[in-house]
C-alpha cells in the first residue's frame, strides 16, 4: 500500500556544500535524485526512510568529462546522457550498452549513475560495468573527498562504505585497455530487471563482473586468474560456480542463474577472442 506523503521530510540544499552540511548537522537524511526507485519503495510500503535530501538540483554533480586518462561522470549523470555521450561511447562502450538496457526512455531520462551506485541493488545493471572497469567512487564529506575502488564499495547486501554524512559525487573510470563486453539477461526485452548481468574486459588479465548472482555485484577474481593462467573455459566455469551464490526468487532460479552465468562466460570468452 502507498505510503502517506505528509509525514515525509524533504530538504533541498542549494549547493553540494549545503547538502554536506545538512547531512552532517541534520541527519539522517537519505539522498534522493532521479527517484526511479524511491517512489517504488514508497508505493509498495517497503521503504522505511522518512527524511530525504533532494540533490537533483545540484548541477555541480552533473556532467561527463575526460581528464587525461580518466573519464569522470558526475553522480547525477543520467543514463540518457551516458547514452548520448560520444566520450562514453568511445572510451567505455560497455557502459553505454548497459545504460541502453536500463528501464526504458522515461527511466533513462531520470535515473542516475550515482543513484544506481547508492541504491546498491545486486541487480543494478550498470554496476558490473563499474566493477569490471575498476571504477573509483568519489565520496565527499564536509571536509574531505575520498575515492574508493568500486570493488571495495559494498560491504554487503545494499550496504556500503559510504558514511551517512557523505555524498557520492562522481564516478571515475581509468582508461580501459582491452575489448569490452556487456550482456544483460533480463525478464524481457525492455523495462526489465536482470536475472544475470555481466560486464567484462578482455585483456592480458581479463576483468569480469556479474550482477544478480550474489548479495552484491561481484568481481570474480579467481575466475579471472584461471583464465589469465590459460585455463580452459570449462575450468573457468567451474571456478565461477564457486564464486557466485545466486538465489531462487520471483524472477528466476539458482539453477538458471548458475548455468547462464557459465554460458555468458563462455560466450564472452569466445566472442572477444
Amino acid at each position: 500500500m502507498r505510503t502517506a506523503i505528509s509525514p515525509l521530510v524533504m530538504r533541498q540544499p542549494r549547493s553540494v556544500r549545503d547538502a554536506l552540511r545538512m547531512l552532517r548537522d541534520d541527519g539522517p537524511l537519505t539522498p534522493m535524485a532521479g527517484c526511479t526507485d524511491l517512489y517504488v519503495g514508497l508505493n509498495f510500503g517497503t521503504l522505511g526512510d522518512r527524511r530525504f535530501l533532494d540533490i537533483w538540483g545540484l548541477d555541480e554533480l552533473r556532467g561527463i568529462e575526460v581528464r587525461g586518462d580518466v573519464l569522470r561522470l558526475g553522480a547525477l549523470t543520467t543514463y540518457a546522457e551516458i547514452i548520448r555521450s560520444a566520450d562514453v561511447r568511445r572510451r567505455l562502450p560497455m557502459l553505454a550498452a548497459a545504460s541502453r538496457e536500463i528501464g526504458a526512455v522515461q527511466i533513462q531520462n531520470r535515473g542516475t549513475i550515482g543513484g544506481n551506485i547508492a541504491n546498491g541493488s545486486p541487480a543494478g545493471d550498470a554496476l558490473p560495468v563499474l566493477a569490471a572497469a575498476d571504477a573509483l567512487v568519489e565520496l565527499r564529506g564536509i571536509e574531505w573527498t575520498r575515492r574508493v575502488p568500486f570493488t571495495d564499495f559494498y560491504t554487503g547486501y545494499r550496504a556500503s562504505v559510504r558514511r551517512p554524512d557523505e555524498l557520492i559525487t562522481a564516478v571515475e573510470f581509468p582508461r580501459v585497455a582491452g575489448r569490452q563486453w556487456f550482456r544483460k539477461v533480463g525478464t524481457r526485452a525492455a523495462q526489465s530487471i536482470s536475472k544475470v548481468v555481466m560486464a567484462a574486459v578482455r585483456a592480458d588479465r581479463p576483468r569480469i563482473a556479474f550482477g544478480s548472482v550474489a548479495p552484491t555485484v561481484v568481481r570474480v577474481r579467481r575466475t579471472e586468474d584461471a583464465l589469465a593462467a590459460g585455463a580452459s573455459v570449462e575450468e573457468a566455469q567451474r571456478v565461477l560456480q564457486e564464486e557466485i551464490s545466486p538465489i531462487d526468487d520471483i524472477r528466476s532460479t539458482v539453477a538458471y542463474r548458475r548455468e547462464v552465468a557459465a554460458r555468458l562466460l563462455a560466450q564472452f570468452w569466445s566472442v572477444t577472442r
Binding site: 527517484c35 517512489y39 523495462q191
Partner: peptide
C-alpha cells in the same frame, strides 16, 4: 512504479514518468 508509462509527461522536453 514507473513501469507502464501511462503517466508520461514531458519535463523540459524529456519524457518522464510523472508517478516517479
Amino acid at each position: 512504479e514507473g513501469e507502464c508509462g501511462a503517466c508520461t509527461v514531458l519535463v523540459d522536453g524529456q519524457a518522464v514518468n510523472s508517478c516517479l
